Amino acid sequence: MPSYITDSRLNGYEAAFCGAMAGVVSRFFTAPFDVVKIRMQLQPHRTQFHLKQASPSSHVKYDRVLPALKTILREEGVRGLYKGNLAAEYLYLLYNAVEFCAYREIELAIEKLDSKKQLPGSAKTFLGGMLAGCVATSITYPLDLLRTRFAMQGTHNQQYTGIVQAVKLIYRTEGVAGFYWGVWPAVIQIMPYMGLVFASYDHIASAFKAARENGTLSADYKPIHDMLSGALSGVLSKTAVYPMDVVRKRLQVQGPSRKHYVIDSIPEYATRSWFKCMTSIAEQEGVSSLYKGLTVSLVKVAPAISLTFFVYEKTKDTLLSWKE
């Protein structure tokens, strides 16, 4: 029995279209939080875990979510909150199209292989999400790197003025390998992350579906149930794998372009090793620095995953109604 996400009435192209629509809409509404998160992650100051809200540090430019948003608005205007958004829109469109299409095909393949139904449903959705995320990340990673570098530029003396120009410049100065700074932590992070997202979403959404079918909950609120399922799955999954996201961002901004970024003294790592980078951050800035930007990331990921699955489900329902 396929998961709540997959519908046998949709083919791979239709699943990809639903995913692409979900990615574009989700990205547009959450872009400002992504810019703030990236800048928080790349600040090299030492941090510590606090039970209470720590007072802002005078030498830290982006310290908390709202003050950071205000700083970017004041210095760079509204456009500053959408830096790198074009590359990110392409990224999310392609990423979600590949991911949902791959998830459908992988899940159906697992169903065929597990003809005796020995694997539990949660294991199948986790495996399907894990492999789909790995495939989508590997294919779209250069766009992710471009998104990060655009988001780090100031308003003056910009090194990257457009996607085509940025691609040519990175290729000329860093070679093909320049497009894949931090690809290993990205893949290592995304596999458990998307596995957890799909597995937890399927579990929560299926529980809502059962409650609707037995009359406990009204079917009129299905969109809200889908959004709640997405938000909860996103928060749980992002928290579990967040340190790898920080390492990925640190590695993505390596190279000759570092002097053009809005944050001074971004650490330079002599290695592409994600593990050495992670240990270096922990030693120099404290273990809690591996969670820099977690708050804004959760503020972003809850509506992002929520919108992604909401738009996916609505697009899926629309396509199915047209087919019928």
Rank of each mutant, 00 (worst) to 15 (best):
A205W: 03
A211M: 14
D220V: 02
K209A: 11
I281V: 15
V287K: 07
V235S: 05
M244T: 13
I263C: 08
S288R: 00
I281K: 01
Q252A: 15
S273T: 13
S288P: 03
A240D: 10
W181P: 04
A231C: 14
D202R: 01
L298Y: 07
A240H: 12
Y291A: 03
E283V: 03
A177N: 08
G182L: 06
C277V: 10
E285Y: 01
K292F: 03
S257E: 15
V246L: 08
A219S: 12
Q252G: 05
Y261D: 10
Y269G: 09
L228D: 05
V197F: 06
L251S: 04
Y221K: 11
L290Y: 09
R212D: 05
K222I: 02
L196N: 04
D226S: 11
Q189L: 07
W184S: 03
V247C: 08
I170S: 01
M227I: 11
G215Q: 06
R258A: 11
S229E: 02
I305E: 06
V253F: 03
A304P: 00
Y201H: 14
S257Y: 08
W274R: 05
I170D: 03
A240E: 09
A219H: 02
M194I: 02
Y201E: 00
G178R: 03
W274E: 03
K209M: 10
S273H: 02
L169D: 06
A270S: 07
V262Q: 05
R172I: 00
S273K: 07
W184F: 04
P185T: 06
I190M: 14
M244V: 06
K238V: 14
K292P: 01
V287Y: 10
R250Q: 15
P192W: 09
E174V: 00
A210Y: 13
L196K: 02
S289E: 05
F179A: 02
T216S: 10
Y201F: 15
I281L: 09
V287R: 10
I263L: 15
L251W: 09
W181Y: 14
L251V: 11
P223D: 07
G182M: 07
L298H: 07
P267G: 01
S265F: 04
G293C: 02
L232T: 13
D245Q: 13
S297K: 00
S206V: 08
S306P: 03
E174G: 00
D245V: 13
V197M: 02
A270T: 02
E285C: 09
I190D: 07
T308W: 04
T308L: 11
F179N: 10
Q254C: 06
L217N: 09
S288L: 01
A199Q: 14
S200Y: 11
A219L: 04
A240R: 05
L232M: 09
T271V: 09
W184E: 08
P185Q: 09
R250C: 11
V183L: 13
Q252M: 14
A186G: 12
M194K: 11
Q252H: 07
H260F: 14
M278F: 06
I224K: 03
I263E: 11
A177C: 01
H225L: 12
K238F: 13
S273L: 05
Q284T: 14
A240K: 15
L228T: 08
A207F: 08
V187E: 07
A207K: 13
I170H: 00
Q254W: 05
Y261T: 06
V235Y: 10
V301F: 02
L307C: 10
S200A: 15
G293L: 06
I204V: 14
P256C: 12
A282N: 04
A302Y: 00
W184N: 01
G175E: 02
Y171K: 08
R272W: 12
S218V: 10
